[in-house]
């Protein structure tokens, strides 16, 4: 790919053609505040925080939407740029609850970060407030539009990443808001509860119902299906309380579905979860060891003619495991009665 050179704040940066000014700056470790930019989403240009000055370009273009070109000279911290950024944040926080200490996103809030970056310590504008009711209908996360800054990351995620389009922007101007069809509660919409929107929400408009924060994280593979999504389980007091996708993993690139994101903790800590094999004797199940269970199964399978045996594979197994299982069915047991639970 063709490489181009540009100068950002006096630093020469080499990037591939097609890179945006924002990406070029990030590659050079130059911080440009953003609220609506996301590496997984198309540039949008709504928050106006990434405005920069570019020599020979009129006005203040947004770094996230402007392609870097060869020889471009960019300044990311000028008085004009900072004034516009400051005004945008001033306007946002005037339209925002600012109850940071008790907010679910406290210290994880991107609006909080840019406010601190710009050194804003007071509200310049009077509070504007629309008093939206909170949508708590989804079992896993809440939608509180009072915190929403309309970066549309959720809407764009639901369109560009999941293709579900359960939500879109509705109405316009000051009345614009994230909405399902007919402003119905999320649970009545086509939302699949994957939570991809929630993950990207920079503020507390989309937050998980689980508000505890983990002490440490454990990397693992999602046990729910054969895709093999990589994830980090957040642990506190020996309990799984959060799950986040591993962005660096090639399989899922950080994405998770509703099961992986919201279905792990419940089954891991469920009192009825089986943790050992069991053998039914006289109508009652009794715990046993893996060796004994496998011996028992092998012995009993040997008592049947091949056609009398069926093998049902599980979606929780990997592709490799499922392959081995069908091999066992066909080559060892000699049966063609093989099926998979995902097809049932």
């Amino acid at each position: 790919m063709e490489t181009i050179k540009l100068t950002i704040n006096g630093v020469e940066v080499k990037v591939n053609r097609g890179t945006t000014v924002l990406e070029a700056a990030q590659a050079a470790n130059i911080y440009i505040p953003t609220l609506c930019a996301d590496p997984d989403l198309e540039p949008y240009g709504s928050c106006r925080l990434c405005v920069v000055e570019i020599e020979k370009i009129r006005g203040l273009p947004t770094a996230c939407t402007t392609p870097a070109t060869n020889g471009m000279v960019v300044h990311t911290e000028t008085p004009a740029v900072n004034e516009v950024r400051r005004t945008s944040v001033d306007l946002l926080i005037a339209n925002h609850p600012m109850d940071c200490l008790t907010c679910r996103q406290n210290q994880q809030c991107e609006l909080q970060q840019v406010t601190a970056h710009l050194g804003i310590t007071e509200r310049r504008f009077p509070r504007t407030d629309q008093a939206f009711p909170v949508d708590t209908s989804n079992p896993f996360f809440d939608l509180d539009r009072n915190y929403c800054i309309l970066c549309a990351k959720c809407v764009r995620t639901c369109d560009e990443i999941t293709g579900i389009n359960a939500i879109d922007l509705a109405f316009r101007g000051y009345s614009a808001r994230v909405a399902t069809f007919g402003d119905k509660p999320l649970i009545e919409s086509t939302c699949k509860s994957c939570g991809e929107c929630m993950v990207r929400c920079p503020v507390a408009a989309l937050t998980p119902k689980e508000t505890r924060r983990p002490i440490h994280e454990v990397k693992t593979t999602c046990p729910y299906c054969g895709v093999g999504c990589q994830m980090y389980l957040g642990i506190k007091d020996g309990q799984v309380i959060t799950v986040r996708g591993d962005r660096d993993n090639e399989v899922n690139g950080g994405h998770l579905c509703v099961k992986g994101r919201f279905g792990i903790a419940e089954f891991v800590h469920h009192p009825e979860r089986l943790t050992n094999p069991q053998i039914r004797k006289n109508g009652k199940l009794a715990e046993t060891t893996w060796d004994r269970a496998l011996d028992e199964a092998a012995a009993r399978l040997g008592q049947y003619a091949p056609n009398e045996v069926a093998v049902i594979a599980s979606a929780k197994c990997t592709n490799e495991e499922n392959y081995v299982l069908q091999k066992l069915g066909r080559a060892v047991l000699g049966t063609q009665n093989i099926d998979h639970c995902a097809r049932l």
Partner: peptide
């Protein structure tokens, strides 16, 4: 999607 229809019509 229905939400797209709603988003456009309310705009």
């Amino acid at each position: 999607s229905e939400s797209t229809v709603y988003g456009v019509s309310t705009f």
